[in-house]
Simulated assay, not measured.
Amino acid sequence: MEGAHKLNAKLGDNGDTQFSLDEKQEVVDSFRGTRMWWKLSKASDDYSLYGRKIQRRNYMLVFHKRHRQLVQDSYLPEILQQGRALTAKNRQRRLYTHHENHMSTWTHVPWKHPATFDTLAMDPGKKDELIEDLKMFQKGKEYHSKVGKAWKRGYLLYGPSGTGKSSTISAMANFLKYDVYDLDLTTVTNNTDLRNLFLQTTEQSIIVIEDIHAMELEDKRMSTDFQWYYERKKITLSGLLNFIDGLWSACGGERIIVLTTNHVDKLDPGLIRRGRMDKHIEMSYCRFEAFKVLANNYLDITEHPLFTKIQRLLDETDMTPADVAHNLMPQGKRKRNTNKCLTGLIQKLKKAKLESGTRLSRGRVLPTGHQGII
């Protein structure tokens, strides 16, 4: 916009200020030592779209005729590429969901989840490994085409409730700048509807199926005269497998599928094999490195005299990051006090350690020659 004497400004959807050229204003651009001039022509007549008035804005590009080939072959393609990149960067991302009464279609809301990898309480090694894997995926269009695979990747996040599976998905979406599709299989009638929902998803998106262990997926191998009718009314395991990596999954590209579960042992091995779920990530209990991230998030501290005691207790006790974060937050109307929050966490950890030891003593196996469990 440099060189323009008059600019129009408006408030964007994200709360930022957006500038545009005023009528008959022009700006000068330079490309490989060649000067071009952009000018906003008079806007065309308004037209109505779904009852809204929209005005077309036409820009004129002026350059010397001897530079025509440079403009056509290099300059305009680069301008378009930069424009698409800026649009993707600045656009409001969306969270899509599906409801049973919406006839196999998605509805969406603006998505502004604040979780990032910087604020994610996760083992640093696993976090770095996941970030590198996402970077490789994002740059993998040519590679996937070369090896003859659809440009998609599957992640299985498994571990106890409260270990940060949903926050990890949000951090992934913010890192990649992807939309998120939250797929609730209980609202999908049959395999056909499942396939239609997949075809409606866009590229650069994450498709999430949470708590996959709780879904009742019927095996296609059934011995009944009503098998065909029954399968039309249910999502089968084979239907879900085709959704993840069947022929239809290759329609479009740059999609990530994430399954989450609290009970990985309950899942069909074919569902989570490598190639469907390419990367398995165990979401574990909170250890000291993850705790330091939470302490920085909630208390704005990176060190404290009580950290040594907390580190020892975290090594001896299984407490989820969600429970640790809860104990770092002030309760009720109490103002945040670092010492009180950390002292309270220590008391909770000691109590959890004591309860865990009591359960183990009650469940210890008796010596050889005895029967039963105490």
Rank of each mutant, 00 (worst) to 15 (best):
G3K: 02
G3N: 04
A4M: 01
H5W: 00
H5V: 04
N8M: 08
N14K: 06
G15C: 03
S20G: 15
E23H: 04
K24G: 01
V27R: 00
S30N: 15
R32V: 01
G33H: 03
T34P: 00
L40H: 07
L40D: 03
D45S: 08
Q55E: 09
R57C: 13
K65H: 15
H67C: 07
Y75G: 06
L76C: 05
Q81W: 06
Q81D: 10
Q82D: 01
T87W: 08
A88C: 07
A88V: 06
N90Q: 13
N90T: 11
Y96V: 05
N101A: 13
S104K: 06
W106K: 02
W106N: 04
H108I: 00
V109A: 11
V109F: 07
D118K: 09
L120F: 03
A121V: 02
G125M: 04
K126W: 02
L130D: 03
L134W: 00
K135N: 12
Y143S: 11
H144M: 15
K149N: 09
K149M: 14
R153A: 02
Y155Q: 03
S161Q: 10
T163V: 11
S167E: 14
T168F: 07
I169D: 01
K177V: 03
K177H: 11
Y181M: 06
Y181A: 03
T186H: 05
V188T: 11
V188N: 15
D193Y: 01
D193E: 10
D193H: 13
L194S: 05
L194M: 01
L197M: 06
Q200I: 02
V208E: 00
V208M: 02
E218H: 10
E218G: 03
K220L: 11
K220S: 11
R221K: 08
D225E: 13
Q227Y: 05
W228C: 00
Y229A: 15
R232C: 04
K234D: 03
S238C: 02
G239N: 02
G239R: 03
G239E: 02
I244L: 11
D245S: 09
L247T: 09
S249P: 07
R255F: 03
V258Q: 08
D265A: 11
P269S: 08
G270A: 15
R273L: 06
R274T: 11
G275D: 09
K279Y: 05
S284Q: 12
A290Y: 06
L294E: 07
L294W: 06
N297H: 05
Y298H: 10
I301R: 06
P305A: 08
L306E: 13
F307R: 13
T308I: 10
L313F: 13
L314R: 03
L314I: 04
E316M: 14
T317Q: 04
T317K: 00
P321A: 02
A322M: 02
H326R: 15
N327S: 09
N327W: 09
Q331P: 01
K333I: 10
R336M: 12
C341E: 12
C341N: 13
G344W: 05
K348T: 07
L349T: 01
R359T: 14
R364C: 05
R364T: 04
V365E: 08
V365H: 08
I373V: 14
I374R: 13
